[in-house]
């Protein structure tokens, strides 16, 4: 990697000041994407601001009818949190499927969401559970957050402080992993929320999205057969050496159906 200035602030405010004063600063959460990028010399930031020591960003709490996960909380912490397991077991199960143990113990929810890799898992949970992304300056609804491949509603200097997940009646995530990377080739999260059934797809398209046809099909009840009659258009789905868009379209359907089966 190229040389850079390394900072380890202890507050959000300090981190943002450092970012502002840096020529080309980069916030680092768990570093699971940034560090490999730096090692391959594909990025050359002047400053790396490591959020790893900001205590206020770490932790999982219950707040009324929601579970609030700090932005620097690791996937492993979410996967094994008794609170998450008790209140939103589908979210704990999803976190348990991210990467491998090493990734889960370094990678964070805030880092993952800010990066918005199209094959990451968390967008499924955020969209299906109608979560709210809380930043240093505002609250962003899940439906407004994901804007495209590696693109979100976040400003350049905006930092995710927590993610607020309303507790659903129930939820389940089913994922077909890429055999090599074990990222999602397609993942489907289905949740019964106060606002109705929500179906979110990740891995298949440029970024996570809600599958509204499936939501409508499930309004009458969580019947897996309701998915059978749906058609998934492959047009906007990803195609690469691992899977064609047509195969991903099939996986979207199969994973959604399996998630519904898990809830039915």
């Amino acid at each position: 990697m190229y040389a850079f200035n390394y900072h380890r602030p202890s507050t959000v405010q300090e981190a943002l000041l450092l970012l502002k004063s840096a020529e080309d600063g980069k916030l680092m959460a768990g570093g699971q994407t940034l560090i490999p990028t730096l090692k391959q010399r594909l990025a050359q930031p002047s400053d790396v601001i490591d959020l790893g020591r900001i205590k206020e960003l770490v932790g999982i709490t219950e707040d009324g009818d929601a579970v609030v996960v700090g932005g620097m909380t690791t996937h492993g912490a979410v996967a094994t949190s008794p609170l998450v397991e008790a209140r939103i077991p589908g979210l704990a199960a999803l976190a348990h499927l991210i990467g491998d143990p090493q990734v889960r113990h370094r990678g964070t929810i805030g880092g993952s969401l800010a990066n918005n890799d199209p094959s990451s898992d968390y967008p499924g949970a955020v969209l299906a559970l109608d979560a709210t992304i809380v930043t240093d300056r505002r609250k962003i609804a899940a439906d407004d957050f994901f804007e495209g491949m590696f693109d979100t509603a976040l400003e350049e200097d905006e930092l995710i402080t927590s993610v607020r997940f309303p507790v659903p009646a129930k939820s389940a995530y089913r994922k077909f992993p890429n055999p090599a990377s074990r990222y999602a080739m397609a993942g489907a999260m289905v949740a019964v929320t106060v606002g109705g059934v929500r179906v979110a797809i990740t891995g298949a398209g440029p970024c996570g999205y809600r599958w509204t046809e499936a939501e409508q099909a499930l309004e009458g009840g969580l019947d897996p057969a309701a998915i059978d009659g749906l058609t998934v258009a492959a047009d906007d789905l990803n195609s690469d050496i691992h899977a064609s868009a047509a195969y991903r379209a099939n996986l979207v359907k199969v994973m959604t159906k399996r998630a519904v089966e898990a809830l039915a």
Binding site: A233, A234, A246, Y247, A249, N250
Partner: peptide, 15 residues
Amino acid sequence: VWQAIHGSAVAQAAE
């Protein structure tokens, strides 16, 4: 394997 099971016609139908 999925294509082998379902044949290319099925794969195309899924598109």
